[in-house]
């Protein structure tokens, strides 16, 4: 696109962001402040992820963008178009074909590889924010690794409900040191972060923080020995591809309680459907 630099941001800004990313990779799970820029998309719609993606994209990259697991949700379309327009790079909806995957609220079902990077959009990077409003105080809690308060919250959950009731944005310990918000992915996705082969980058635009999980790093959900972390998934199989191992969206079919459960990861679902058709054709 004329009048703009490759991938929108000027090179100085990209260097600033890359420095923040390097620091973030060096201190897994630690929130690194960065001079976040206003982007032509609104705050809260992925500006942090977009800045991180813009800073790491090269001309040979292939970009996939998902929102809620799907490539065709409007915000995913909008961001994918933004980079197609400002960077002129190739885009894809196939997880396996992408070198960079920007995501909001999901991790693809297909395991990621060492030559891929996943960029998470983060609305609220501070996992302690709901328990302690002051960022000056939470900063100190991170510095001293004082995370007892987070366990108090989990204790209260069990005392009240009999189990931990956090179903998404489940707090995790990264590399045994920093408490981290995994962004609002469902708890179902949290185990995928543990020792993932791909580099995981997190961008929070409004709050101007970047953090990272290097490949093969330990990521442990907070829990109790006698109330271990457990994930939540609708018990059904996908109504389109029959998957029982994927995270499902619930689709309201009518006003009489009709429901259909389908994979939230549209690429995964489509892949399984076409495999089925091939098998049917072969049979």
């Amino acid at each position: 696109m004329s009048g703009y630099n490759f991938a929108y941001l000027d090179e100085q800004t990209k260097r600033m962001i890359r420095r923040a990313i390097l620091k973030a990779v060096a201190i897994p799970g630690h929130q690194v402040p960065f001079g976040g820029r206003e982007m032509p998309l609104p705050y809260g719609w992925g500006t942090g992820g977009i800045q991180v993606t813009a800073a790491i994209l090269g001309p040979s990259d292939v970009l996939k963008v998902i929102d809620q697991g799907a490539d065709d949700t409007t915000n995913a379309v909008s961001i994918r178009r933004f980079f197609a327009r400002t960077a002129g790079i190739e885009t894809t909806t196939h997880t396996a074909d992408a070198s960079v995957i920007q995501t909001r609220h999901r991790i693809p079902e297909t395991p990621l590889r060492a030559d891929q990077i996943i960029v998470y959009q983060v609305p609220l990077p501070e996992p302690l924010a709901k328990l302690e409003q002051s960022r000056a105080e939470t900063r100190q809690m991170h510095a001293l690794a004082e995370y007892g308060l987070m366990h108090v919250k989990l204790y209260e959950d069990i005392a009240r409900y009999g189990h931990i009731s956090i179903s998404y944005d489940y707090p995790v310990m990264v590399n045994g040191r920093y408490l981290m918000s995994p962004s609002p992915i469902p708890a179902f996705d949290t185990p995928k972060m543990h020792r993932m082969a791909a580099l995981q980058l997190f961008g929070a635009g409004r709050e101007k923080r970047i953090y990272a999980i290097p490949p093969h790093t330990d990521v442990k959900p907070l829990d109790f020995d006698d109330h271990p972390f457990r994930l939540t998934r609708a018990p059904q199989a996908c109504g389109l591809c029959g998957a029982r191992d994927s995270y499902l969206d619930e689709v309201v079919m009518d006003d009489r309680g009709g429901r259909l459960f389908v994979c939230s990861d549209t690429d995964y679902c489509a892949g399984r459907q076409s495999m089925r058709q091939d098998e049917d054709a072969a049979a």
Binding site: E146, G148, H151, V152, Y155, I158, F224, D225, D226, H227
Partner: peptide, 11 residues
């Protein structure tokens, strides 16, 4: 809270 702050992890 103090027990958890000291590392107690068994509810």
């Amino acid at each position: 809270e103090r027990l958890m702050a000291q590392g107690a992890r068994h509810y």
